[in-house]
Amino acid sequence: GTQMESKIAFVPSQHSFASVPRRLLGQLPRIGAGEPVALRLCWTSGGERREAVVGWGGGVAAGDALELPSALAEALGLSSVRAVHVCHASSLPLAVRATLAPESPEDWALVSGGAARLEETALTQLNVLTAGTRVPLWLDGAACAWLRVSELHAADGPVAAARLASGSELHIAPPVAAAATGGGGGGGDGGDSGGGSFVARLEQAPRGWPPLALGLSAAAMAARRISPGDLVLLYARGAGAAGSSAAAARGAA
């Protein structure tokens, strides 16, 4: 697709979706029917041309810069970059299987202990993966687990980058230290695949969660720079709850 230059800004977020400035929206496809949309970012660092693929969930940036979650920018090596070229990554295949490895025993403890949660919420945090890159995932409030993508497979074989959707499988194995001590965790619906590894089959929406519609007045939406169809993150604390939980809803006029 056509490349567009944009400054980038970093924002604290517990997901890996970019937010696009309004001036670039006309160059991107509309979000619809659950189809993942990916952006290809290109930049120069140390005299070398680099690129990365990030997901877009329909979010609109508050200013004129492409907004990236701080953890995602760290994972992609973009923390010191000030501008990138952006285009729609239109030819990414759909991932059938992705193999990931937690970076530490602590990261393994988080993902193995929250396998079912991972299946239910991963698609609310990211919709693309690139082989060889790091991925942050939030599974228990503010606790972030870091994983590295070692392999990606589409229906016809290995690929360098791919979209994620309902039914994509994440094959997660423990770090060497955890595996050596027998530190295996529970599995998701895919079950334990041996040696402590497990398979998480991604779901489009959390099991048993009713659809959530967010009603805002036109004035409230304008004040917060929210447009119909934008992805909105909600943080709620129930009475007596031990921590906060996050949910995603589509903005409605």
Rank of each mutant, 00 (worst) to 15 (best):
A200L: 06
D189K: 12
A52Y: 02
V84P: 00
L72H: 01
L72C: 01
I226S: 08
A205T: 15
T44S: 14
A241M: 11
G59I: 03
A61Q: 01
A220F: 08
G55V: 11
W43V: 05
A246I: 13
E35Q: 15
A89W: 03
D192T: 14
R50F: 00
D156W: 13
V149I: 08
A213T: 11
P36R: 11
S227W: 12
E67V: 06
V199Y: 09
S79W: 09
L139T: 09
I172D: 01
C42T: 13
S245A: 14
A236Y: 13
W146F: 06
L25R: 02
A218S: 12
D64G: 10
A18Q: 00
V149E: 00
D64M: 07
A179H: 08
V96D: 14
A179F: 07
V37W: 06
L212P: 03
A173F: 10
S80W: 11
D230N: 15
G55F: 08
E106D: 14
A62R: 11
L68N: 03
S217P: 09
S245E: 07
S90G: 08
P206N: 08
A142W: 06
V128Q: 03
E103Y: 04
P93H: 13
A162V: 12
D230Q: 15
W56S: 03
G77W: 01
A65C: 02
R250L: 13
L41V: 00
H88C: 05
L39D: 02
A61F: 00
G240Y: 02
W56Y: 04
L170K: 03
W108F: 04
E67W: 05
T130H: 02
A71F: 04
G63I: 07
G243T: 10
V96P: 04
A95F: 04
A218N: 10
A178E: 06
E203H: 15
G185C: 02
E67M: 06
G195R: 10
G26L: 02
R97M: 10
G196Y: 00
G229S: 11
L100C: 09
A220G: 09
A205F: 14
I8T: 01
A18K: 00
L126H: 12
A178M: 02
T133F: 00
A122M: 15
R207C: 15
L170R: 03
V96K: 14
L129T: 08
G58N: 07
A223L: 12
R207V: 15
G141N: 01
G208D: 10
S91M: 09
G187R: 04
A177P: 03
